[in-house]
Amino acid sequence: MSTTSSTFGGQLLVVGVLAQVWQLSGSSVAVGAIGLANAVPTVVFGMIGGALADGLDRRRLVVLSTVGQLLSAALLAWHAFAGIRSLPTVLILVAVHAAFLGLSAPVRRTFVATLLPPRLVGAGIALTHLSSQAAMLAGPAAAGVITARWGAGACYALDVLALAIALYGVWRLPAAARPGGEPTRPGPRAIWEGWRFIGRSPALAGSFLTDVFATVLAMPVALFPAINAERFGGNPDTLGLFLSAIAVGGIAAGTASGLVTRSRGAGLIQLLAAGVWGVGIIGFGLAQPLWLALGCLAVSGAADTFGVIARGALVQAATPDSHRGRVSAAELALGISGPDLGNFRSGVVAGATSPAFAAVCGGLMCVAGVVGLGLLNRPLRRFRLPGSPDSTRSPA
């Protein structure tokens, strides 16, 4: 309940900020600055939050950071309703909101593994991802209607309500949501130790590298406007269908997530899912009829969901609780920066060649990277989740 409510409210805030910044500036550069105001604080404070999660009471940390998000959303609502036309203030409040989100995000990722028995961790991650996908599908649609009728301030106000619900959900968590083992003293050394732990674990390092191949090499979102203009008349409705197709594929895969949770070969599933993602992007780059382009994106969205669930289960299973916060923070940092870098790569390649070439070559590089990693990284390929007779942990 807490994560779903927080995600839904976050989507309301994202759309509200986009609408307000465009209204205040009329500048695409200013709208692009929103991404910077979000990404940098989320990554920086996400690393800090991961270190804190391994040394402090996790439940209390999420409660305090959620209160910070709630207050910053309330200030955004006040700013909008008061009619203050200050773009810097909006961006600063967005950055503050993102910083508190970064503090809580890696901690939230540890809750499934600490509250559920090992055999149910995969199912718990699948359910969490499915609920988040549903919130991400419904949130923007609702936000568009709310913004059109009542303005961005209404979106911010509803985000405050959603965060209040999320706060109640975290407050009700049992004490099992606290870190186990010897508490870690937060600081740069603790953060570095988390990255060293990942480097010493072939399964973890391979899992993260698989995600890098899929996002940095084959992220297609930056190509959507150009491909839409070249092939499908540039209709904004069609552009929206591209994003919806990925989400629909993800939700469909989420309903079939038992295929992942019942199969304990998380590493192999993640590799296969990343490969299918790349193939789907190749198909999208080559597709001429709209139905085929949307179908390829839906397949990629489904593969992405299977990959995210498998990676999440593998990361939690391969990481002892003493390092779980820091490793989750590293996963968060890669999850945020990877797509941004991938979209930048796609845009640069498309500018030098063509959007279709950027999509196809990105998908081919993703598939090649995944195949090579699968052949060379045996611990990742053979990693088994707890719950089966032959399950083993990756050496740390």
Score class of each variant (00 low, 15 high):
Met1Gly: 14
Gly9Arg: 06
Leu18Pro: 00
Trp22Gln: 07
Gln23Asp: 14
Ala30Met: 11
Leu36Asn: 04
Val44Glu: 10
Met47Tyr: 05
Gly50Leu: 09
Leu52Ala: 13
Ala53Lys: 06
Leu56Met: 14
Asp57Asn: 15
Asp57Ala: 13
Leu64Val: 13
Ala73Lys: 07
Ala77Cys: 07
Trp78Pro: 01
Leu87Asp: 04
Val90Cys: 04
Phe100Thr: 13
Leu101Lys: 13
Leu101Arg: 15
Gly102Trp: 08
Arg109Val: 00
Phe111Glu: 02
Thr114Asp: 12
Leu115Gln: 03
Leu120Ser: 14
Ala126Ile: 06
Ser131Val: 07
Leu137Gln: 04
Ala138Cys: 09
Gly139Ala: 04
Ala141Cys: 03
Ala141Phe: 12
Gly144Thr: 01
Thr147Glu: 12
Ala148Thr: 03
Arg149Lys: 12
Ala154Glu: 05
Ala157Gly: 14
Ala157Pro: 03
Leu158Ala: 11
Val160Gln: 13
Val160Thr: 15
Val170Lys: 09
Trp171Cys: 08
Arg178Pro: 00
Pro179Ile: 12
Gly181Leu: 03
Pro183Asp: 13
Gly194Tyr: 04
Gly194Trp: 08
Ile198Glu: 09
Ser207Val: 01
Thr210Gly: 14
Val212Asn: 02
Ala214Ile: 05
Thr215Arg: 09
Val216Trp: 02
Met219Cys: 03
Phe224Cys: 00
Pro225Ser: 08
Pro225Cys: 11
Gly233Met: 01
Gly234Tyr: 02
Thr238Ser: 01
Thr238Asn: 11
Phe242Pro: 01
Gly254Leu: 02
Gly254Val: 05
Ser257Thr: 01
Leu259Glu: 01
Val260Glu: 12
Arg264Thr: 06
Ala266His: 11
Gly267Leu: 06
Ile269Lys: 09
Trp277Arg: 05
Ile281Asn: 12
Gln288Trp: 08
Leu294Val: 10
Leu297Ala: 08
Ala298Leu: 11
Val299Ile: 15
Val299Gly: 08
Gly301Met: 08
Thr305Ala: 12
Gly307Glu: 07
Arg311Val: 00
Ala313Val: 04
Val315Arg: 12
Ala317Ile: 00
Ser328Phe: 01
Ala330Arg: 08
Gly335His: 00
Ser337Tyr: 00
Pro339Gly: 13
Gly342Ile: 00
Phe344Asn: 01
Ala350Glu: 07
Leu364Ala: 15
Val371Ser: 01
Leu375Met: 11
Leu376Arg: 15
Arg378Tyr: 07
Arg378Phe: 08
Gly387Cys: 06
Gly387Asn: 05
Ser391Pro: 01
Ser394Thr: 06
Ala396Thr: 10
Ala396Trp: 14
